[in-house]
Nucleic acid binder design. Structure first.
Ligand code: FES
Ligand code: FES
Lengths: 147, 147
DNA sequence: GTATTGTTGACCAACATAGTCTACAATAAT
DNA sequence: ATTATTGTAGACTATGTTGGTCAACAATAC
């Protein structure tokens, strides 16, 4: 029952972007450094986010990446989905065909409840919310933010 | 965000036992057949459950395994924990030391909410509940149960 | 044109998953 | 006591996933 680094790193990278929204493109290198993610790895993580239209990128000098839409329009479940695939704890929760007898499987109902609970939480939180939380944490401590 | 087969198979195996509670030892072979789990694999899954005192086993002819305590005293989170380890979506949710700066990580709060939600669900359901659900499903269909 | 940035894809080491197979230990029935 | 029957333990393995690295390439500001 583990979230992969992809989802976590991606979330952190986007949080970073949310915190710098409106300041123009941010260098991948800077995100990588601040979040302590390997640059080469981050490159891979950012790709699907660009493809999905969450992130806009510009190449060349003064280039970088930035959020392609307001932080309040990006929900965490989107991010996780793009990087880790469906939230489902088991295949059959999404596609009945995965397990042969999904029709009469009591455990399956439980897995579905799990899925729903997770999805409800993740889809209730926007990047904006996350950024606000982060800022609150930092102000409380009075230090430079880091994640 | 996936539950491994261990947790799923284990749950199904225990459900099977719950449905046969009070009928004496059930053969591993029978569980394996009914649940379509490889016997050799099931043997591995049952071991930690025995060690944890959820299941009692007797060897030799007329042997087999059975629930070591009433089905209403076994909660799903126990089973999952024994077979899949901590529910935590990320390390740092359990042990702060896993991530260096867990103190000021907003995402971490989210992961903790996720953990709590999952745990709440799993710990609210006992094997007895699961068995009842299963029986209800079968009666509704009027067929032999299978999972 | 050149330095700078993102983009792509090939490649890889380590680990986890989902098993199999074999030898062994206990015990009930005879 | 022997034997057939059951669970127990451990070594082994094949496959996939994770979490990367590296090098070549494409776009663009200057
Ligand atoms: S149907 Fe997929 S777990 Fe039972
Ligand atoms: S502290 Fe572990 S994800 Fe941020």
């Amino acid at each position: 029952m583990r979230l992969s680094t992809r989802g976590r790193y991606g979330t952190r990278a986007l949080l970073e972007l949310a915190l710098h929204q409106g300041e123009g493109p941010v260098l991948l290198r800077d995100i990588a450094r601040k979040q302590e993610i390997s640059l080469s790895y981050l490159e891979h993580l950012i790709t699907p986010l660009i493809a999905a239209g969450l992130v806009a990128s510009t190449r060349g000098p003064k280039g970088g990446v930035m959020l392609a839409k307001p932080a309040e329009e990006i929900r965490l479940n989107e991010i996780i989905y793009l990087l880790d695939g469906p939230i489902a704890p088991v295949e059959c929760v999404n596609s009945k065909k995965a397990c042969a007898r999904s029709e009469k499987c009591a455990p399956r109902d439980i897995w579905q409840e799990l899925r729903k609970a997770m999805n409800d939480i993740l889809s209730s939180i926007t990047l904006k919310d996350l950024a606000s939380r982060q800022i609150a944490k930092e102000e409380f401590e009075g230090t430079m933010y880091y994640i």
